[in-house]
């Protein structure tokens, strides 16, 4: 009985081999081709397309990021340069205005000095002439007094 169960010599049994085996094999092979056409190829296409899409997008983003970083450093450099240039301009302008101020101050000083000097000289000369006139008047008066005194005697 055990042998008939094992070998399937009679009807049934666990190890009853028959045409089920090759037909099942054919069925599985067919299923492989059908699933390949309906499942593995289309899904693979979608997944791989997405993977490619993600990869290219990532590469692009990386490239863009690098570009942005490059531009940023470049702009930073430019900003630094511009700042330096502006500082220079400010310094130059400050120096200029300082110079102008000094020049104007010096000019004004010298002009003031000159006009003061001129005024003093004028005052001096007027005083001298006034003194000379006074002296002459005093001399005349003196002479007149002397003449009169002499004449009365």
């Amino acid at each position: 009985m055990l042998s008939s169960f094992l070998l399937g010599a009679t009807e049934g049994g666990l190890f009853d081999f028959d045409a089920t085996l090759p037909l099942m094999a054919v069925q599985v092979v067919l299923l492989t081709f059908i699933l390949n056409a309906l499942f593995f190829r289309p899904v693979g296409k979608v997944v791989e397309e997405r993977e490619a899409y993600i990869t290219t997008n990532r590469a692009e983003a990386k490239q863009k990021l690098a570009e942005v970083q490059r531009l940023e450093t470049e702009l930073r450099e430019q900003l630094k340069e511009a700042r330096l240039a502006a500082q220079k301009v400010i310094n130059a302008a400050e120096e200029d205005s300082d110079k102008l101020y000094r020049e104007a101050l010096a000019l004004a000083n010298s002009e003031a000095n000159a006009s003061r000097e001129k005024a003093r000289r004028e005052i001096d000369s007027q005083r001298d002439s006034a003194m000379a006139e006074l002296k002459a008047d005093a001399d005349n008066l003196g002479n007149l007094i002397v003449d009169r005194l002499l004449a009365s005697k």
Binding site: D18, T20, L23, M24, L31, L38, F39, P42
Partner: peptide, 27 residues
Amino acid sequence: DLRIHGQVFMTSWIVIGALLALVVIGT
């Protein structure tokens, strides 16, 4: 002349049908 196990094929067709249905719906 061939003898096959009907119950095995019946369930295998159901299995294959379920698989194909899933695949067709999903794709």
